[in-house]
Design a protein around this nucleic acid. Structure first.
Lengths: 238, 238
DNA sequence: GGTTATAATATTGTATACAATCTGGCACGG
DNA sequence: CCGTGCCAGATTGTATACAATATTATAACC
């Protein structure tokens, strides 16, 4: 059920390095703005500079790191303004995913989606935040998968990664949690009716509201633990 | 007006190589499916293997080349099914671009858009296909720029590149031409009214109809000049 | 004669060495 | 005391050399 399309091994160091580095960035192990010295990472990953550099180029193309010629690479900083733009696109992608999922998803997949949603509700009631977030992501990924659109898959994954990174910096508002669950309940109803338009609209709306919450959370000083931000400015004072 | 934000030079070979190779692929100089022997391209571009390989990784991340471990890289083949999927996403992006452009575009930009549209009509009447296509692309790029969304910018550019490549393989139906101009006329009217919803809807519709035309053109054996397709098969006999 | 095993060749993957550029500090002069 | 220019160190960019894998051709065997 995982990835039977390409069971072929991918045994190249640079590919492994891409996955490893991407995970490190998304997990916050490499916080935004931090410099990425090549040699240090080389011995840390146990590889040479060549595959590592190739990996950095790929991640740069994905927008997760920023290459400054002759000045080294840094983990791409998360700037709230850009997050807003990213969410604008994400809204459109969510809507598309919802619409296509209704059209192309199998009954078995819809059943699975229902089970995942039940799990989500349970985890919300139990207050298991980490588990909830994971299930939440899995649900959205499942919806995208049901859309049967590889291009959407890849594009969505890219944006989801960036958004995930922004979220990790923000202290999530608990009030938003209940609201979010309600919205999930809403588009699930549309899904059960296979109402493509409605499901798409509700998913886009859900994304938009999430955007507002995340951006608002980013504005608050909160944690911003990462350390090295782009330059110096203490905070987004304006 | 061009790019004052980053007048700094980008003098790295691998970056140049990316741009060079991308142009070669989009221009059809490197047709889909053709193998990309590293050494040959190295002497052709006058660089070493290291920067070339980094460039290939980036292009692979963009989906323009396909890396097969230990088996060399090939220019990503254009498969009609995937083009359909790409256009599905493109529809959503066009809609978003139209909506945001209405909201965020300046009057000066709208005036410029009008002038570009006039030029388009003129070129259509004169039957100047190549010039028409160029203006057409510029119009859509302008609309995206007016949306004031960097994430949309980058994503749109990626999809536009892939679509452009597919188009270059297809013999364009002349009957579609008039229709396309009419559609342009339609969304321009919406733009003049700053009707965001309508403009977005019409742009998405325009994209969808273009998709149908392109896919249909791809189905016809037509030219498929590229030469080396993936393997050997004489044509898409089925 | 066809098929399979094996070895030679070529191409890719990785590591290392060298060149170019940037960073930081220090001395000199204003 | 502050600004400018220069030099040392470090880090990145590039080239080349070596190792690993896939492809092709050959030959032996059924």
């Amino acid at each position: 059920m995982k990835a039977p399309a390409r069971p072929i091994r991918r045994a190249t160091l640079h590919h492994s390095a891409v996955e490893e580095l991407r995970a490190m960035i998304l997990d916050g192990e490499l916080p935004p703005g931090v410099r990425v010295p090549e040699v240090q990472l080389c011995e840390q990953l146990g590889i040479s500079r060549t595959p590592l550099r190739e990996a950095l180029r790929v991640l740069s193309s994905e927008g997760l790191v920023e290459l400054r010629p002759h000045r080294g690479a840094i983990v791409a900083p998360v700037d709230p303004g850009e997050i807003g733009a990213i969410f604008e696109v994400m809204d459109a992608l969510e809507r598309l995913a919802g619409t296509l999922a209704c059209r192309n998803g199998s009954d078995a997949e819809f059943a699975k989606l229902d089970r995942m949603h039940d799990q989500l509700v349970t985890q919300h009631e139990a207050g298991e935040r980490a588990a909830y977030f994971l299930t939440n992501r899995q649900i959205h990924t499942q919806i995208v998968a049901m859309a049967r659109n590889p291009a959407l898959d890849a594009t969505y994954a890219g944006f989801a990664a960036k958004i995930l990174r922004a979220r990790s910096l923000a202290n999530y508002d608990t009030g938003r949690w209940q609201e979010s669950v309600d919205e999930h309940e809403g588009f699930m109803k549309a899904f059960r009716r296979r109402d493509a338009e409605e499901a798409g609209a509700l998913l886009a709306d859900h994304s938009r509201r999430t955007a507002v919450a995340v951006i608002q959370a980013l504005r608050q000083p909160s944690v911003q633990e990462g350390g090295a931000v782009t330059d110096a400015e203490p905070m987004d004072v304006e």
